[in-house]
Design a binder for these strands. Structure first.
Lengths: 205, 205
DNA sequence: ACCTTTGTTAACCATTTGGTTAAAAAATGT
DNA sequence: ACATTTTTTAACCAAATGGTTAACAAAGGT
C-alpha cells in the first residue's frame, strides 16, 4: 500500500540543487562544483545536462520569475472590485512566496545586476505586466467618489511594497525585531489580512 | 578666486571606484581588476592601499550600512509625536537614499548572503536598532485612543516597506510603469508626503 | 548475445582571479 | 645634493573555476 517512491531523477536533483545554490549565493557567487556536490553528482554530469552555467541559471531564474510575476499581472487584469483584488492579491502572493521566502530578493537582485537580460529573457513577448487597467480602476473609484482622492500609482506601489518587502528584508527584520522562523511566518500570515485592512482604512471615505 | 581643485587622492579614487563596482556587481561579482581600472590605477596599488578584497569590501559595506541604519534607529529613539516621526522619517530617508538609490538592495542582498558577517561587523557593540520604544509609543497612542487599534509591528513594517521598497525594486518599477530617471525621482519626491498621508489616513480615528 | 544509445566518472585544460615581488618613480626630510 | 620613505608599476604566481575529453558503465533495442 505504500506508494513506490521513485528516486528523483538526476535532472530534478540538479534543478533542486541549482535553485538552492543560485538563490543562496546569486549567479556570480554560485559555483558549479557546489551545485554538483549538492546534487550528489560529478561536475561533468552537470555540463552533460546543462551546457553551461548561464543556461542552468536561465532555467532557475525563469522559473523563479515565473512564480513571482504572473500573480502581479493577475491583479492588473482581473475583473473584480478593487477591495477584493487587494485582498486576494495579498493573501495569494504571501502564500506563494512564503514557500520560497528568498525568491524575491534573488530575482530583484539579478534584475538589478542586468536589467537588459531580464527584459529580453523574461518579457520576450510574454505576459509583461499591464498596470494600466488597475490604475484606471482606481481612478474610476476615485471619480465615483467611492474612495479618497489618492494617486493610483502610489497606491499600487504601497500595496506591492507592503506585501513583498518583508520577504526582501527578512533577515534584517528577524534580527532587528527578534523573530524566529515560526514567528516570522506567523507575522506574514497576519499580514494577509493586515495589509488589506490598512489600505482600505487609508483610502475609504 | 576659483578654489584650488585638489585632485582626488588615490585612496579617494579607489573608494569611489570600489563603491561603484561593489554596489553594481555585489561582493561575489566584483573584480579587483575592474575596481583598479575604474580608479585608473594598477591592481597592485589597490592591494597596497587595501590588503585584500574582503577588507576593501568591508569599508564599502560599512559605509553603506552606516548611511541606511542610523536613520532608522533615529526614528526609534527620537522624542517626538508619532505623526511627526513618521513624516520626518519618510522625508529624510528618501532624501538620503535618492542620492544612492542602489544602496538598499546592495546592503540587503549582502546581509542575506551572510547574515553572520553583518551581525558581527555592523552591529558589533554599535547602535543596533531598538524598536521597542517606537513600538511602545504606538501602543500608547492606541491606548490613549488617539489612533485606531493597529498592531505596532505591522505599522512599523508598513512604514519601512513603503519607504524603502521602491528603491529595491527600482528597475522593475521603472520598466513596469514606464518611468524614466527623472520621473522616478519625481515619484519618490512625492512619496515624502504621500506615505505619511497614507499612513495617517489609515490609522487616524 | 550484440550493438547502440544514454548516463556517469576521473582526469585534464585554459582562463580568470586574487594576490605577491621586485624594482622604478616620486615625494620628503636633512 | 643625498638618503629615506612613500607611491606606483610591470611581471609573475598559485589557486579557483568553468568547461572538455575520453573512457567506462548501464539501459534499451534487435
Amino acid at each position: 500500500m505504500s506508494k513506490i517512491k521513485k528516486d528523483k531523477s538526476t535532472e530534478e536533483r540538479i534543478l533542486a540543487a541549482a535553485k538552492k545554490i543560485f538563490v543562496m549565493k546569486g549567479m556570480a557567487g554560485a559555483r558549479m562544483q557546489d551545485i554538483a556536490d549538492e546534487a550528489g553528482i560529478n561536475k561533468a554530469l552537470l555540463h552533460y545536462y546543462f551546457k553551461n552555467k548561464e543556461k542552468l541559471f536561465e532555467v532557475i531564474f525563469l522559473e523563479a520569475a515565473g512564480k513571482l510575476f504572473p500573480k502581479i499581472n493577475e491583479i492588473f487584469l482581473a475583473d473584480k472590485p478593487l477591495f477584493e483584488k487587494i485582498e486576494s492579491f495579498c493573501a495569494e502572493y504571501i502564500s506563494i512566496v512564503m514557500e520560497n521566502p528568498y525568491l524575491p530578493l534573488f530575482v530583484l537582485n539579478e534584475i538589478n545586476q542586468d536589467p537588459e537580460y531580464f527584459l529580453s529573457k523574461v518579457w520576450k513577448g510574454k505576459n509583461l505586466p499591464m498596470p494600466e487597467k488597475f490604475l484606471a480602476q482606481i481612478e474610476q473609484e476615485v471619480a465615483k467618489g467611492k474612495i479618497k482622492r489618492i494617486s493610483p500609482l502610489h497606491l499600487l506601489m504601497n500595496l506591492i511594497s507592503m506585501t513583498v518587502f518583508p520577504f526582501v528584508a527578512k533577515p534584517m527584520f528577524q534580527k532587528n525585531l527578534g523573530l524566529d522562523e515560526l514567528q516570522f511566518r506567523s507575522v506574514m500570515e497576519q499580514r494577509k489580512k493586515e495589509i488589506p485592512g490598512f489600505i482600505i482604512d487609508a483610502i475609504k471615505k
